[in-house]
């Protein structure tokens, strides 16, 4: 399955990743290469095979609904690129 430049641009937007115009064609070729590799999977009929969910068939654990983590808000805010009054700052979203 060959990927064209338009697909790369769409996917890059979905992934919120800026791709420079001069590298789009390269990414298209490389993605096509990987998808060509993946196409080898089509040689096997898997219509009656269940997809794997977990190697040892573990299921999601539940725990008691009690607080077991200490509050580290300040420590986490300290490493953020931009904060003010305890909030993370981003460019204005609503005018």
């Amino acid at each position: 399955m060959a990927v064209d430049n338009k697909v790369v641009e769409q996917v890059a937007h979905l992934a919120r990743l800026q791709i420079s115009a001069d590298s789009v064609a390269n990414y298209a070729a490389e993605m096509s290469g990987v998808l060509e590799l993946a196409a080898q999977m089509d040689e096997v009929d898997t219509s009656s095979i269940e997809p794997m969910a977990h190697p040892t068939h573990a299921v999601q654990r539940l725990r008691d609904d009690v607080v077991d983590e200490v509050d580290k808000r300040e420590a986490f805010q300290k490493i953020a690129p931009s904060v003010e009054n305890g909030y993370y700052l981003v460019p204005t979203v609503i005018e």
Binding site: A38, M41, V44, T46, I49, E50, P51, M52, P55
Partner: peptide, 13 residues
Amino acid sequence: YYLKAQKIRNLIS
């Protein structure tokens, strides 16, 4: 792709 790969994974397992 993803679902197919997870099925192949089961076969390998």
